[in-house]
């Protein structure tokens, strides 16, 4: 695998200013991160550690308080650059549009011609397995299918970096495993760089090339774990031994951090 850097965070911090008499919140950092071109990187960490903030900063949805963000050698500073797609934890499918109109949304905004839209939407819907539901409204679909609508909507824009903020957080455990397989397929076929934010250690262990474990707030990287999986992998590796080693290692790092996040100051060793 090449180690060409695709996106970079340099000494990034994010501090939310004081509101309503509360002191300012130091949510993130300082952190440094190099995302390699074409890799699947996951960030795990206790709740409230700034994982989502990290993604917002990278996507240009929020500006870093300190430090710099680079994507493909261009500086990102609170402005969404071209070539980045994002899927969020909350259901963000547009309930007033059919599945295919949802998928076509971004292409229509960009003024792509109708035949090309047709082609890309067909491909994307086929890819996420929603071809038979093209004319359905999101309300008629399950939560997992709606999340796939959002993935299709991102996919048609052919992003080179895909950011996923706990996209399966609201789904049940088995559906999540299957969605994970789809994600791997998507990653392999598009060749895009993927950054996944998750609180599920097994999900991170199964999907990623590398996993960044983040501390309790303000989030910093404790360590980066290389999984060493081949590119051609799927959820069946849950049976293997390596999988258990990786999750065990992650939990070892995160246990005291999670306790801190839960309010056990100092943690219990």
């Amino acid at each position: 695998m090449s180690h060409e850097v695709h996106a970079r965070l340099e000494g990034v911090t994010r501090v939310y200013p004081a509101v309503a008499g509360n002191p300012p919140v130091h949510a993130l950092g300082p952190i440094d991160l190099d995302l390699r071109k074409g890799e699947f990187f996951s960030i795990v960490g206790p709740s409230g550690c700034g994982k989502s903030t990290c993604m917002d900063v990278l996507a240009g949805l929020a500006a870093p308080t300190e430090g710099n963000v680079w994507f493909e050698d261009k500086r990102v500073h609170g402005n969404v650059p071209d070539g980045i797609g994002a899927v969020f934890q909350e259901d963000a499918s547009f309930p007033w549009l059919t599945v295919e109109d949802n998928a076509a949304f971004g292409l229509r905004r960009a003024g792509v011609d109708a035949a090309e839209i047709r082609r890309r939407v067909d491909y994307a819907l086929g890819f996420v397995g929603l071809k038979d539901f093209a004319k359905a409204y999101p309300a008629q679909l399950s939560g997992g299918m709606r999340q796939r609508v959002c993935i299709a909507r991102t996919l048609v824009l052919q992003p080179r970096l895909i950011l996923l903020d706990e996209p399966f957080g609201a789904l049940d455990a088995q559906t999540r495993l299957l969605m994970g397989d789809e994600l791997l397929k998507l990653w392999r076929e598009t060749g895009a760089t993927v950054l996944l934010i998750t609180h599920a250690l097994d999900e991170a262990a199964m999907l990623s090339d590398r996993i960044g474990a983040m501390s309790a707030r303000p989030g910093r990287f404790l360590e980066t774990v290389e999984t060493g999986w081949s590119r051609d992998r799927d959820s069946r590796m849950l049976e293997g031994e390596t999988f258990g080693h990786i999750t065990g290692r992650l939990w070892q790092m995160l246990r005291s951090e999670s306790q801190r996040a839960m309010g056990h100051e100092g943690g219990v060793a």
Partner: peptide, 14 residues
């Protein structure tokens, strides 16, 4: 209107 829709709008440069 959920906040996430405004994020989606920004991702679409709207």
């Amino acid at each position: 209107i959920p906040r996430v829709y405004r994020k989606v709008a920004r991702m679409h440069h709207m």
